Computed example of a mutant assay.
Amino acid sequence: MSSTTLDERENALHGIIRDAGLVALDCYRKRRAGEFSLKGRQDFLTEADGLVEARVFAQLRARFPEDSLLGEETGGGSGGSRLWVVDPIDGTANFARGIDHFCVAIAYVEDGQTELAATYNPVTGELYTARRGRGAAKNGVPLRVAATSTLETASIELGWSHHTPEGEYISLFTAVFSGGASVRRGASGALALAWVAEGRTDGYVEYFMNAWDCLGGLLMVREAGGCTGTFPVTSADLVMGGPVLAAAPGVAGHLAEVTGLPLMTRENST
């Protein structure tokens, strides 16, 4: 792709995600307690998810009709060389319960490489962005991962979903906690990865994430100088999902060891 065309997509992405955030924020402010349903165990569904995704898809189709779309709510295809991956509201449980920790997350993938990313929390006004080879930023200010060098001084966030058996999550928690780390859970994987890129936390691990939850955040971490696991290995992983690890370099090796998840290297990134 020419730089000009990628520039156009980057500019469009930043405008589209801010607009989507306004839709999400409006829904958030108008919601009433208990007005949500469950897709599965602790897997929340709100009307806002569908509204936000429809808004994003409509704008992307109007601007880039030749691109493929993949979203959490309406699915789509991962075929074609140009793909937008959309999570309309990540942190749906927080959204549904009135907790200001949720976001809209969008990534742009070309020929299997994540080229652009944006994660927006409309409540706080924090817009995290990244472009492959050009760094990551929050509201235009460059990001850098933390300089933490040991698990004993690290803050690590762990994610859980119904795809992961309870025993595996408990074992993961035990392994990280026993390594000396402070363990937290914020219930938004996309924001968790952005926080690693920002240096607010030192690492994030989840044994199963969908592509729309993590593609953009993984790019942000790498562009901010951090390390990530190997997901996604193939284009099929964009639909199937997989395990995610992201961390500051000083603790990445330790975290990979205690979790059993390999880190991306030059050899396995191609």
Rank of each mutant, 00 (worst) to 15 (best):
D7K: 04
D100L: 00
E8H: 11
I17S: 08
E8Q: 15
G80T: 09
A24F: 06
G75L: 05
R29Q: 11
D87V: 10
T5K: 06
V56G: 03
V52M: 08
H101D: 00
H14A: 07
H101V: 01
F102I: 03
A62S: 04
V86I: 09
V86T: 13
Q59T: 07
I89T: 05
T5A: 09
L70D: 03
V86G: 10
A48H: 04
D49K: 08
G79Y: 10
V86Q: 10
A33M: 12
T5D: 07
F36R: 07
R63F: 08
L69N: 04
R63V: 05
L38Y: 09
E8G: 12
I16G: 09
F36S: 06
G15A: 11
E47A: 09
D43P: 01
D19W: 06
Q42P: 02
G76W: 02
T92G: 01
R82T: 07
F102N: 03
V23T: 10
D43A: 10
F64L: 01
D87F: 01
G34S: 14
G77P: 08
S37N: 15
A93I: 02
V23R: 07
T92L: 04
L38T: 00
L83G: 03
H101L: 03
R18S: 08
E53L: 10
D87S: 09
G15Y: 12
G76D: 01
